[in-house]
């Protein structure tokens, strides 16, 4: 019994030591420049969305129905995200814009193309094919699960 008590005391002591150290670390670790990051995210995210709207308006001008027009605009944005990832620009943008370039659909394209490019050397099956969705995969899985649950709620309420 006293042995167990000692072990517990030891554990508590260790935890306290860890917490103390963590607060020391927090004191010396530089914090991200929040205002600058927010401004970048706001401007870049906003610009990407404005670009999307421009494409939607353009396709609407071609007499496409609204649903098709927004699908076309999405396809163009995905292409652009993939293209700028391919020529090595998107990561430089992401470094500054953060969520501003991750959240829009161009960021989704980036998260698929980046691993696909990187794992090309491991071949087209176990490299590109298998690793392509290594980051986007969870987004797809939980996106679909959420859609399913919401659909279910909608169906029950009817």
């Amino acid at each position: 019994m006293p042995n167990e008590m000692n072990k517990k005391q030891q554990e508590i002591k260790e935890k306290m030591q860890q917490q103390k150290y963590q607060s020391k670390v927090d004191n010396v670790t530089p914090t991200p420049p929040l205002l600058k990051n927010i401004c970048w995210a706001f401007v870049v995210g906003g610009l990407i969305c404005t670009l999307g709207q421009l494409f939607t308006d353009y396709f609407l001008g071609l007499d496409l129905p609204k649903k098709e027009a927004s699908a076309c605009a999405t396809a163009v944005l995905v292409f652009l995200g993939a293209f700028f990832t391919g020529i090595g620009v998107y990561d430089d943008l992401g470094k500054r814009a953060g969520a501003g370039s991750i959240v829009p659909i161009t960021g989704f394209a980036n998260s698929i193309v980046a691993p696909a490019m990187e794992f090309k050397r491991e071949g087209y099956v176990f490299g590109v094919g298998a690793k392509m969705f290594v980051i986007a995969g969870p987004v797809l899985v939980y996106g679909m699960v959420t859609a399913f649950i919401i659909g279910l709620i909608y169906w029950i309420r009817q």
Partner: peptide, 17 residues
């Protein structure tokens, strides 16, 4: 980077630390 973190072309923001 590709073994421990993200693919190099991913647009992620590294923390200042």
């Amino acid at each position: 980077e590709r073994q421990y973190r993200f693919p190099n072309e991913m647009g992620v923001q590294r923390p200042p630390g």
